[in-house]
């Protein structure tokens, strides 16, 4: 599904060049659950953003579903994102002035889904994340774990094939964190590919493969065997 070959990302300012990613090569197959770990500033989030077509890169090759990403027009990469990818952020990134229901509904609106079907799908998601009773609440009325559930709900409502999660449990306590990880695992088991950036070994243990980054280099890859 995802192939990166010798991918590099350089931030340039007037005087300094920062190599955020250096010669990264990585393959992710459909249905995998990959964790990316590494110290702060090693380029994890940058890598995730590039994979999610939110950011561009300077050198190398990125092939998504056999399409070379670098040559895509803005509009095309928007379309790939819309149709295939859901995002989960550490700080949830919910829209404050929209209710739980409306937050989850948003991607469907942008996909042009009819209102009757939207209702069906949002209700289904709300049940899945067990927040049906909270659908009219605003984000600030929810706990962190609930907010992240809403964010995950929003990420999966359009049925993406790939979920990119950037430290999804980073702002949560351990109980809420494991709840979120259970949800992601369940999603993965139903066929969704997941790439997750994390600082937590225990979170990484939920995944099928662990990728370690250091100073922009990919330093090791390791597969977990789940029983």
């Amino acid at each position: 599904m995802i192939q990166l070959h010798h991918l590099s990302k350089i931030y340039k300012s007037d005087t300094v060049e920062t190599h955020a990613l250096k010669e990264i090569s990585l393959q992710v197959e459909e249905g995998e659950f990959v964790s990316i770990m590494g110290p702060s500033g090693c380029g994890k989030t940058t890598l995730l953003n590039i994979i999610g077509l939110l950011d561009n890169f300077n050198r190398g090759l990125y092939i998504f579903d056999s399409k070379e990403v670098k040559e895509l027009a803005e509009r095309e990469s928007e379309k790939i994102r819309k149709d295939n990818i859901g995002f989960v952020f550490q700080n949830f990134n919910l829209l404050d002035e929209l209710t739980v229901y409306e937050n989850i509904e948003l991607p469907l609106i942008y996909l042009g889904v009819k209102s009757s079907e939207r209702k069906l799908r949002v209700t289904e998601i709300l049940e899945r994340i067990s927040l049906g009773h909270r659908s009219g609440h605003f984000p600030y009325q929810l706990s962190g774990g609930q907010q992240q559930k809403v964010a995950i709900g929003r990420a999966i409502v359009a049925k993406p094939r790939l979920i990119l999660a950037d430290e999804p449990t980073g702002n949560l306590d351990s109980e809420q964190g494991s709840e979120i990880m259970e949800m992601l695992t369940a999603l993965n088991e139903s066929g969704t590919t997941i790439i997750m950036v994390t600082h937590s070994i225990s979170d990484a243990a939920y995944s099928s493969r662990l990728v370690k980054l250091m100073d922009g280099h990919l330093v090791s890859e390791k597969s977990f065997l789940h029983v």
């Binding site: 999610g52 819309k82 995002f87 990134n93 919910l94 948003l106 942008y110 996909l111 359009a158």
Partner: peptide
């Protein structure tokens, strides 16, 4: 800016 970013990630196009 933040809101626009989020909406964009969720698939909003420029015109919207």
């Amino acid at each position: 800016t933040r809101e626009i970013g989020i909406r964009k990630v969720l698939g909003a196009d420029v015109f919207q």
